[in-house]
Amino acid sequence: MTRIDDLPLREELRGQSPYGAPQLDVPVRLNTNENPYPLPEPLVARIAERVAEAARGLNRYPDRDAVELRTRLAAYLSRTTGHTVGTDQVWAANGSNEVIQQLLQVFGGPGRTAIGFEPSYSMHALISRGTGTAWISGARNEDFTIDVAGAAAQIRAARPDVVFVCSPNNPTGTAVAAETVLELYETALAVKPCMVVVDEAYGEFSHRPSLLPLLAGRPNLVVTRTMSKAFGAAGLRLGYMAADPAVVDAVQLVRLPYHLSSVNQATALAALEYTDTLLGYVEQLKRERDRLVDELRGIGYDVTESDANFVQFGTFADSHAAWRAILDRGVLIRDVGVPGRLRVSAGTPAENDAFLEAARAVFKEHGTQPDTAAAPGTSAQPGTPAGTTTSEATA
């Protein structure tokens, strides 16, 4: 039987693991940061109407440039962030991962490098490798914030072509201050022509305002978003970005023909009609997220400040054993390889109650203390090239 290593793989892909999270049949699943609330029935009906309209024209290719969708996304961003965004500043694709892939195809590639500050969203490194872009793992502080001076020094030393900043950061939930992004942007552009990509997949859940207004006067800055989380549409696979119109023109050089289907566009347009209803669910999840933080701290856990729809907590001598103990109680959360820490998505009140009951029992069994084991997927030293360690990607 042929093994993957028997194939003529590119060297930077050897020994890597594909993206994925355990998909187990358990009563409570809080491991992939999904919005737990199903779409409201009026929206489901509206999607059916929109898709039926699209179906009548499926013999034709979809709108290649998704103009109506981009216009509606621009209006949504303008209304919710207070920063006016034009249609020519928005681009949409199949999930924010495809947006990131297109950015790396244009601004990364062989002979170029990208840097991110880990632990962070592991698809940044995976997509970098997939596009032939060398990955550099930057370091974070012990509290998972970005050390501005240290990060700037790493950028000056590495001279990257793409800088990733995830805010709120996955898997830690940590938000990044606007001042930090500005410092990194100015540092990166002072070194060489470079793109700075702010990943705001969880932006709607943050206590802080969006970083989108930073786009003004900064043509090398990009903000990526998704409809998977706040819009409760993980199954839709619709991501988008806001940037200077020139950046939107640039990614169209590499986008596949008619990459967004008519059905995807129709479904996304229907969801945007129900923005206020869906953002109401976001407010509920923010309250539940804050409740998880408070109650986990009350139990005795060390909890990272969260601006996302998930919470990182610990610390465990053996985080995987603690993950298994919670799973044995019918609750699936995530072990993403951060030493001594686990991550739980905010669910419905009932789901969160079930998790907290399991967390209380596990605390009595496992206690909390630093995990001294090596952390899969996190580099021991800043600047370590990708491929020296493997990781389970975070969603």
Rank of each mutant, 00 (worst) to 15 (best):
N94V: 15
P22F: 09
G203L: 09
N309Q: 08
L211P: 03
E288Y: 05
R225M: 11
V44F: 02
R255S: 14
L221G: 11
E49P: 02
E392C: 05
V344I: 11
P245N: 14
E68L: 12
P18M: 12
L212D: 01
H207A: 15
V148C: 04
D276P: 05
V28M: 01
R334P: 00
R334K: 09
A55S: 13
G340D: 02
Q16G: 10
S210H: 09
R329T: 04
E204Y: 12
R29P: 00
Q16N: 03
K192E: 13
P382A: 05
A233Y: 03
R112W: 09
A243T: 07
F316W: 08
V251P: 00
R79T: 13
V222A: 05
P27V: 04
G130N: 05
A266T: 08
A354S: 13
P171S: 10
R208N: 12
D161Y: 01
T315A: 07
T388I: 04
R156H: 05
L238W: 04
Q312F: 03
A190D: 11
N33K: 03
L30V: 01
V248R: 14
A243D: 09
I146V: 14
L69H: 10
Y274I: 02
K192C: 13
Q369E: 14
G138L: 02
W135C: 03
N33E: 09
D88S: 15
D276M: 06
L327S: 06
G57H: 15
G298E: 12
T378R: 00
G138Q: 01
R72K: 12
V222H: 05
V197F: 13
D25W: 06
A114E: 14
A308C: 06
N33M: 13
L182N: 01
V163P: 11
G95K: 12
